[in-house]
Amino acid sequence: MRILLVEDDHQTADYIRNGFSQSGLACDVVDDGREAMLRAADEDFDVAVVDRMLPGLDGLSLVKSLRAAGVSTPVLFLTSIGGVDDRVEGLEAGGDDYLVKPFAFSELLARVNALLRRPAAIAEKSRLRVHDLEMDLIRRRVTRAGQDIDLQPKEFTLLETLMEHEGRVLTKTMLLERVWNFHFDPKTSVVETHISRLRSKIDKPFDAPLLHTVRNLGYSLHAPR
Rank of each mutant, 00 (worst) to 15 (best):
D42P: 05
I81D: 08
G95M: 12
L137T: 14
L133A: 13
V71K: 13
G167D: 01
S65M: 11
V47I: 00
F103A: 04
L66S: 08
A114E: 07
Q147L: 13
L78W: 09
R67P: 09
L99I: 05
A114Q: 11
M174S: 13
E92K: 14
R111P: 12
I149E: 02
P153E: 03
L115R: 05
A110Q: 05
E160R: 15
L57Q: 05
P119R: 00
D85P: 02
A48L: 10
A104M: 07
L91C: 11
G83S: 15
G95D: 04
E177P: 06
A123L: 03
A69G: 12
E134T: 15
R144D: 13
F103G: 02
M163N: 01
E134L: 13
V179E: 11
L176Q: 00
S65L: 06
R87N: 07
Q147F: 09
E155A: 13
E124Y: 12
L115T: 02
D97C: 08
N113Y: 00
D51Q: 06
L115V: 01
V47S: 04
G167Y: 12
A123Y: 06
L116A: 07
L128S: 00
L133M: 12
V112Q: 01
L54T: 08
F103T: 02
T143L: 01
D132M: 10
L162S: 06
A93S: 14
E107L: 13
E124M: 13
G94Q: 08
G82Q: 05
D44W: 12
F105H: 10
V142H: 03
Q147E: 08
T161P: 03
R52V: 15
Q152E: 15
R127H: 15
R139Q: 15
V49P: 11
I149Y: 05
L38Q: 14
L158P: 07
A40Q: 00
F105W: 09
S65N: 09
K172I: 07
D86K: 04
L162G: 10
E134S: 14
V63R: 06
D85F: 06
G70D: 00
L137N: 14
M53N: 14
E160D: 14
Y98V: 03
V179R: 09
A93I: 01
R139S: 04
A120K: 14
A145I: 07
L175D: 07
T143P: 02
P55Q: 10
T143Q: 10
G59Y: 01
V112L: 01
